[in-house]
Amino acid sequence: MTAMQHDPAYNFAYLDEQTKRMIRRALLKALAIPGYQVPFASREMPMPYGWGTGGVQVTAACLTPEDRLKVIDQGADDTTNAVSIRKFFERTAGVATTEHTNEASVIQTRHRIPEAPLGAGQILVYQVPIPEPLRFLEPRETETRKMHALEEYGLMYVKLYEDIAHNGAISTAYAYPVKVEGRYVMDPSPIPKFDNPKLESGAIQLFGAGREQRIYAIPPYTQVVSLDFEDHPFEPSKADHDCDLCGCGTSYLDEVITDDAGGRMFVCSDTDFCAARQAEGHRGRLSGEDAA
């Protein structure tokens, strides 16, 4: 949690200042047009495409030496790729890091929004694999750009309708499409749809897709609506259990296989949230054993 000296072989936060300025310009444009995908000249980073290079570049462009950074993957601070990205910024920016959501000024995330509400003064940076919500309906960028320009989202509604016709329900469980401020349909990155309501937030939310060279954003307190139908309203969902470690009945849960006889347990995917609740004395079905 202490700030370190950054590796003098690299510029602060790895990218050179001109590249950071280019990214900041894209970020400002993205904030000015909520939900619109701004092309940017993504750089080749020392981690693979698809592993968070977009998020890493956005974080690099936002970080100041005074920031306190948190990195999560699947809600957890200790997943391997989160560890790797946190180490990268410890080395190249020397910024302080934390696992506590409320202490962080910049949070880079993959696939989750923290359970604890975020507020003013915080930036949430999402890693985005495929920024285009229409991509799997229309593979061509030339076409999807046109569809956004013309606000031609009928295809998306047809897809959702067909889901209902075939399966009785909208069969999108994550990366559930949203409409931002009544204009652009946006991919919220592969967060579970459980997290969608949290997209309306007091924090700045920035989305970086490195390989696809796109940045987009949701400014604080922007309207974000998950697409649905009046007779099939959007429904955030989670495993129908309480956390087995902290007893929480409202957090998103990971299912963990515990033996080869069908035994399983459910635990909060947000590790910081779960640990904080346990520290406050909350207990779940399996606490008290060697669980914690």
Binding site: D73, Q74, R110, H111, A173, S237, D254, E255, S269
Partner: peptide, 9 residues
């Protein structure tokens, strides 16, 4: 990489 959040969903 881990995808257990999406998979759980």
């Amino acid at each position: 990489l881990p995808h257990y959040v999406d998979f759980q969903s």
